[in-house]
Amino acid sequence: MKIKMTLGDRIFNTINGIILAFLCILTLFPFLHLISMSLSSPESASKFGLHLIPEGLNVDAYRKVFENGYIFSGYANTIINTVLSVILSLAVMTLMAYALSKKHLVHRTFFTGFVVFTMFFQGGLIPSYLLIRNLGLMDNRLALILPVLVNTFNMLIIRNYFMTIPADIEEAAVIDGANDLYIFARIMLPLSMPIIATVALWVAVERWNAWFDCLLYIRTPSKYVLQVLLQRIVIDGSSEFMNFEVRTAGTNSEPTTETIKAATIIVSSLPIMCVYPFIQKYFVKGVMVGSLKG
């Protein structure tokens, strides 16, 4: 059905569009700044102001970043960890959220309390480290995945979404004699794709950006994740670590240049930035209608 647009609609759309376009411009310039920084010569990086147009076209910084011996293993580890995390986390979280979304679940209040309690009381770093060691997970990528398997907040978001799905959709299936797990897999999950996609994105981004746990639990450099590299270059690069003896002995090493930092940030975050557009297709309106009709 085609509906004619009224004048009010047109004005509304125009204003809305202008505001949103303006917002885009506002949020885009730091990237222009970083991209042009990464392509500029190191000497011009100290120049005042934002760098929105690169000075010359200098890909040295990228060359340097990719020369780093650990960048490819870093990529591989990060991608594997992220994908594994998303799959495992969502499996455990959606199941749990589904059970907790049922008002008739036995001990429901207790279970919810059991989960929420952990948001406010944590044992801290030392016991967690001992735990990982006692579980024999040291230097194992599972040490980066299992401890953050369920995020209470994310799980509750999924649970609340499940709760907003009208009960009558399920009831039909119950009458057909389907069990809970069948309903979960065949009805709830397809109906909840928008929130599952959202939480998948949250988990993926969180895992992609994590680095401290890697420093804590991973010993073998070839198992390091990408962000450790970024951290070393962006944070450590600002503090003088190359001791003067080493300089004196020959390597004319200097603090990491701002151009290399910019290139590192872009190289390490570009892949994860590109995930969102693929997730957007789950945000299409009318999902529910379709499934109801089907």
Binding site: G123, V150, L181
Partner: peptide
Amino acid sequence: ALLPGLIYYLVFHYAPMY
């Protein structure tokens, strides 16, 4: 459905809570 999550919480949250 609840079980894997509960085990996770026991091991990774309640055990180190001391």
